[in-house]
Nucleic acid binder design. Structure first.
Length: 544
RNA sequence: GACCCUAUCAUCUAGCGGUUAGGAUACAGCCCUCUCAAGGCUGGUACACGGGUUCGAUUCCCGUUAGGGUCGCCA
């Protein structure tokens, strides 16, 4: 390309390649350290897949003594949304992603390899694009969107592989004078990569998750610089990951088709290609068919969905970790109290199947364990935080009765494997609290219809007379047995089961009478603990 | 249409030439038990199909079928 053309296309001063390279020296890291990143787009929507991809990047980077950074991919100015970046940066640490470098909440760069926002790197991309142009590895294209669209339609009609390649790459062989004419006429241009690939020849792509893949070489002259002067993903990826020293890229499966192009681009720049790990996409079942979780159709594709529903962040992290490396659940079993971050993430353990269906049933099971591992105080804080946003009345109740609620949440908690596991998400807590408060307690005498009314009264009053809130659990239960025996109920289950006709019922029925009177329910956590927390006055009052 | 990926219980998966095909979730039953939730134990259910290669294929190769993905001045 003549200097005249280059000067017309890039009239503004740009940093020299040497200057740029000097600002991004190779990283000095220990042997084997990996540099990985998460690269969200600030579109106002944080995809679960971003967290999914980020988890393996952050674990592998940190566990290898390397660096994990965030890069904001905002080259599509049309999709950029106000507040989107804040949502992303605020969510990352909550979902176990702790970047060493990137942009912080104040919007400042942290780290020596920035700026970490692509729109702020325009000059850098342009400098490299200009270099490719000078070297004849790129060329301006004056086709309009309509031109390209028309070509595509023709190709589709003729059953020819669509795209800007071969004879369909109309601007590829423009003469210098033709180019100058266009430029002088002020026509819009984009910069295209002049591909040297041959589609009929195969190339090997090594993937950390899938192994060796043979794919046709890329022969598409893809756009590297858009009309607005910003790069496309392909070019930005190559330039940034080179300069920022990325060693390994974890990204969704959908990128695998463009990997030959990326390898070609790295080669054209004379740079080393990072290693790739293409992750099977998260899928969902739709009308009996699996499909990629879609931002447009599926609420659960957004990370905010999980927070709104009140799933603890660690539930999502552990669930995604298990999809990434299925041996996580074995590790979790062997290390029930370790934080999930301690689990050694491994590229070799990435399952290479078609794509995982998002399984809420399994996630619920994980969630029960996650919540059961927390202390009552931690649960309290988490529920309060959630309720403040999504259940104001509950939040007020929690704030007003901190100690009382914490005591409730502490029932059968912290006793290891047998800890209570009935909470799946924060919204479940409200239901657990209802009978502890008079304003939400509802008596359900009809649940005791099968008993003789006189028996119910007698059981209640006899127990009330001897109830002592200072009793230990065995003494407490002994008193229930005593009431049972006094009233013709079997004091132990075996005796009752052997001769049910001899009794009005068993000690379990006596407990049921007390439970229903005190809580209005047939099923509750440990009744002894409930009475204790309610206090003697309220317990006796409900017993009538 | 072309290209690429994938194919093991209902679901997520282990497996990398010889296994009673393992685990987890879900489901069923039993035990424990003051009812639940748990916990313990037990159980049923899987290698898509057709060809090869091999003494021997879930495993390797080819094809069929099915599902997924990509083919943008979106990422």
């Amino acid at each position: 390309m003549t200097p005249e053309i280059v000067a017309k296309m890039f009239p503004n001063p740009l940093p020299s390649i040497e200057e740029i390279e000097a600002k991004y020296p190779p990283r000095t890291l220990p042997e084997g350290a990996k540099v990985m990143r998460v690269a969200p787009s600030p579109t106002g929507f944080l995809h679960v897949g971003t967290i999914y991809q980020g988890i393996i990047a952050e674990r592998v980077a940190h566990q290898s003594g390397g660096v994990f950074f965030v890069r904001v991919e905002d080259t599509d100015q049309k999709r950029k949304k106000e507040g989107a970046l804040e949502l992303i940066l605020e969510s990352f640490p909550r979902y176990g992603l702790h970047p060493d470098e990137g942009v912080n909440m104040a919007g400042e760069d942290v780290g020596a390899y920035g700026p970490y926002t692509q729109s702020l790197r325009k000059d850098i991309y342009q400098a490299y694009a200009k270099k490719l142009l000078e070297e004849g590895k790129a060329y301006p294209c004056f086709c309009t969107a309509e031109d390209v669209d028309l070509t595509r339609k023709i190709q589709e009609k003729m059953n020819i592989r669509p795209g800007y390649h071969g004879q369909y790459a109309k601007c590829r062989n423009l003469t210098d004078s033709q180019i100058l004419e266009h430029l002088e006429a002020g026509h819009n241009w984009v910069l295209r990569f002049k591909s040297t690939g041959n589609y009929d020849e195969k190339m090997a792509v090594k993937d950390l998750a899938k192994g060796m893949i043979m794919m046709p070489q890329n022969d598409m002259d893809i756009v590297i610089l858009k009309n607005d002067g910003l790069p496309t993903y392909h070019f930005a990826h190559v330039v940034d990951d080179h300069l920022m020293g990325t060693t390994h890229v974890s990204r969704g499966d959908e990128w695998i088709s463009s990997t030959p192009l990326h390898i070609q681009l790295f080669a054209a720049m004379g740079w080393k290609t990072p290693k790739y790990a293409h992750l099977a996409t998260l899928q969902k079942l739709d009308n009996g068919n699996k499909r990629k979780l879609s931002k447009r159709h599926d609420a659960e594709a957004s990370i905010t969905y999980f927070w709104e529903k009140g799933y603890p962040e660690m539930t999502v992290v552990e669930y995604l970790t298990n999809i990434l490396n299925a041996n996580f659940e074995d590790w979790r079993k062997a290390n029930p109290t370790e934080p999930a971050e301690k689990f050694q993430m491994n590229f070799n353990k990435i399952s290479n199947t078609g794509g995982a269906l998002f399984d809420f049933v399994k996630m619920h099971s994980i969630s029960k364990d996650v919540i059961a591992r927390m202390t009552a105080e931690e649960v309290y804080e988490a529920v309060l935080k959630w309720a403040t946003e999504y259940n104001k009345p509950l939040a007020e109740k929690l704030s007003a009765h901190k100690d009382y609620v914490t005591a409730i949440l502490n029932i059968e908690r912290g006793i290891g494997a047998k800890s209570r596991k009935d909470l799946v998400k924060w919204e479940d807590v409200e239901n657990e609290l209802t009978f502890f408060f008079d304003d939400t307690f509802v008596a359900h005498p009809e649940l005791l219809e099968k008993f003789d009314e006189a028996d119910v009264k007698k059981v209640a009053s006899e127990f009330a007379a001897i109830y002592d809130e200072n009793d230990d659990k065995d003494t407490w239960f002994g008193k229930i047995k005593q009431v049972a025996g006094n009233n013709g109920f079997a004091t132990d289950m075996k005796a009752y089961k052997a001769n049910p006709a001899d009794y009005k019922g068993s000690v379990a029925d006596v407990a049921k009478i007390l439970r229903v009177l005190v809580t209005g329910r047939e099923q509750t956590p440990d009744l002894y603990a409930i009475m204790k927390i309610l206090g003697k006055d309220k317990t006796l009052q409900r017993l009538g």
